[in-house]
Design a protein around this nucleic acid. Structure first.
Lengths: 213, 213
DNA sequence: GATCGGATTGAGCAACTGCTCAAAGCGTAG
DNA sequence: CTACGCTTTGAGCAGTTGCTCAATCCGATC
């Protein structure tokens, strides 16, 4: 995209299609992880989706594992913006629950959480992958904790429910719900749960009204 | 084990070591799934752990996938007894939460839930495996629903929390917590959550006291 | 036009996979 | 002791995997 006319003696500039190839490979990796799972996201499969030769994966990323991590980063970045907006636009717990339901629906449609789950499941038994994946999941817990802390501020439930603990539960629940929904091919139970959470949240909002925002 | 002296003309009796070999293979499959994950639970790896030739897997089970399912069944059966006892011995929600914490600890130690998670994650992208695994997870949801229904009987929270929805959340949460605990190599956040649930449950027990048992 | 260097390709290797099949082992019935 | 049949084995096949490496392409520099 951006054609930077850089230094000429050493690496005179990025060759034209380098960045584009990298991007195509990451996109292909995300698609492969989402549609074929970790086991199906092989170098050749990713390259096929990216429309290039599989050797490029090792040239640009060094190994398929590193490309997998890059795909995880890409998905994380893409979803972070969406989650942040969801939290920012919610003025009370009821809003948040309703927004979360919509976002969960999106995540299931686009298979983004599937990429997370596949990478987490695979990382358990891949020693050199586990710390990398763990480091990429941890920020989600921190983000959730911040969101919960903000959302619960002034609520009578705040004392009984520490944000860190709730956040941990929320992340675990989100992953688990996604697994069950994909396994059964039925997201209705999960959506019903979000609706239920909305009702409980609205109840809490009544007690909280006037304290915040 | 049981030497049945059956019909002699056709399949005169089960040959001595047939049942034992099957059992050894199932045990090996469970161990392989737990310690090496789904990707590592190959025919040769399972056979190595069972101390026999890999061809026996195909002779006795027809395919590795069917052995994987048999391993899933074995784990399910083994845990069902434990969960049932946990529910039976709990007289109120506080008891149940405390028992659940202990059982979660056991599950993590013995890696039983890991087998579940691995099979679920793999089944997502293995068309012929998905319905089989789904059919084996569904009973857990039903069991959880029954337990929640019984535990919540007479509680003021019962109206706000339908057993089926709570059960779905509990199963999803259990799977998610196990994934996060294994990923981080730290079960403390999950255990803290069980403790928190115990406190909330004891609070509910106060309102319920005298209505049940 | 010649040269240079990063980007790209094709071919191939060693290891692994699920699975098949003919041959062998071996306890039991006759 | 022989013969039968379930059980077990060894060898092997076709396919896939991650990855390497020499050879090429191609745009930018001289």
């Amino acid at each position: 995209m951006a054609k930077a006319g850089g230094k000429r003696s050493i690496t005179p500039s990025r060759s034209p299609s380098s960045a584009e190839t990298r991007a195509a490979l990451v996109t292909g990796a995300v698609a492969a992880l989402r549609e074929e799972g970790f086991a199906g996201a092989s170098a050749r499969e990713i390259a096929r989706r990216a429309g290039c030769h599989q050797s490029l994966i090792f040239y640009h990323f060094g190994s398929v594992a590193k490309l997998h991590l890059a795909a995880l980063d890409a998905v994380s970045a893409a979803r972070h913006a969406r989650y942040q907006a969801m939290v920012d636009e919610s003025e009370n717990l009821g809003d948040l629950a309703r927004a979360a339901r919509a976002v969960f629906d999106e995540d299931l449609d686009q298979g983004h959480v599937t990429v997370l789950v596949e990478m987490i499941a695979a990382a358990q038994f891949t020693p050199e992958l586990r710390p990398e994946v763990a480091a990429r999941i941890r920020p989600w817990r921190a983000f959730a904790a911040d969101s919960v802390r903000e959302a619960l501020a002034g609520s009578p439930a705040a004392r009984l429910l520490p944000p860190e603990e709730v956040a941990h539960a929320v992340v675990a629940l989100y992953l688990g719900l996604e697994m069950l929904a994909n396994l059964e091919g039925d997201r209705a139970p999960a959506l019903a749960l979000f609706d239920r959470a909305g009702k409980v949240a609205s109840l809490l909002d009544i007690f909280t009204r006037g304290r915040k925002t």
